[in-house]
Simulated assay, not measured.
Amino acid sequence: MADLPAVLPLFPLPGALLLPRARLPLHIFEPRYVQMLEDCLKTPERLIGMVQPRKVPGGPPRLNAIGCAGRLTAFSETEDGRYMITLSGISRFRMVQEIEGFTPYRRGHVTWEGFERDRGAVETDAALDRDAFMDLLGRFFADQGLATDWESLKDAEDELLINSLSMLLPFEPEDKQALLEAPRLENRRETLVTLIEFAMRGGDEEMVQ
């Protein structure tokens, strides 16, 4: 925790989920986020906080309390000044207070307490029934008209499998936030299964209950 800063630049992007030990490719082109990236490259940590905005009735979107910080591990610049970057997930954080002014992009005071597991060993899911889970995925992908490399999924370790699906599957931003906030890998898998089953039932709330 001594290496993690108390202030982070924030990149609010609906539906873009980053999880610890996972990688998120991003396309940066808005001037304020190009400035954020250039400032990030000047810091020793090279961290950017991915956080989802949430809708507020009758008001502007607000930031969710929990996000995930990613370290800038790859980037390339195009001739017209855009960037293709990759963030590697380091740890979730909790917003303490947003910082007003001084930069064209948003920044926040954050705390890393409560997310020590994110900076530990790769997680496993002892309760995962892989055969049943893969069967559910097969039916979901067919239902949604999605394609994937099934051999890679079958061979993936628990954490890589569950986190990759959480990041890539087409769920709503509030569902992505629920996956982010799951305390353990097992909880995330349970949330993922619930979301998949909900989607396959056409979003019928009564059938899920």
Rank of each mutant, 00 (worst) to 15 (best):
Phe133Lys: 02
Phe133Ser: 03
Glu113Thr: 09
Arg119Val: 01
Phe93Val: 02
Ile99Thr: 11
Pro104Lys: 07
Thr103Ile: 08
Gly108Lys: 14
Arg119Pro: 06
Gly120Leu: 06
Arg92Ser: 00
Glu123Gly: 11
Arg117Ile: 11
Ala121His: 14
Ile99Asn: 00
Val122Glu: 14
Gln97Ile: 01
Ile90Gly: 10
Tyr105Asn: 07
Asp129Ile: 00
Val96His: 09
Ile99Gly: 05
Thr111Val: 15
Glu100Gly: 08
Arg130Glu: 14
Glu116Tyr: 11
Arg92Met: 03
Thr111Trp: 09
Phe93Met: 01
Arg106Asp: 13
Arg106Asn: 04
Ala132Cys: 13
Glu113Phe: 06
Arg92Asn: 05
Gly120Lys: 04
Thr124Trp: 01
Gly108Ile: 10
Asp125Pro: 00
Gly120Tyr: 04
Ala126Ile: 05
Ala127Met: 10
Tyr105Asp: 06
Ser91Gln: 01
Pro104Gln: 03
His109Pro: 05
Asp131Gly: 12
Ala126Arg: 12
Gly120Met: 02
Ser91Thr: 07
Asp131Tyr: 13
Gly101Leu: 10
Ala127Thr: 10
Ala121Val: 04
Glu123Tyr: 05
Arg107Trp: 00
Ala132Val: 11
Arg107Thr: 08
Ser91Asp: 01
Ala127Asp: 01
Arg130Lys: 13
Arg94Asp: 10
Phe102Ser: 15
Ile99Lys: 04
Gly101Ser: 13
Ser91Tyr: 05
Arg94Phe: 04
Gly101Lys: 00
Glu116Ala: 14
Ala121Ser: 09
Ala121Arg: 13
Arg130Ala: 05
Arg130Tyr: 11
Arg92Asp: 03
Arg94Trp: 04
Val122Ala: 15
Leu128Tyr: 01
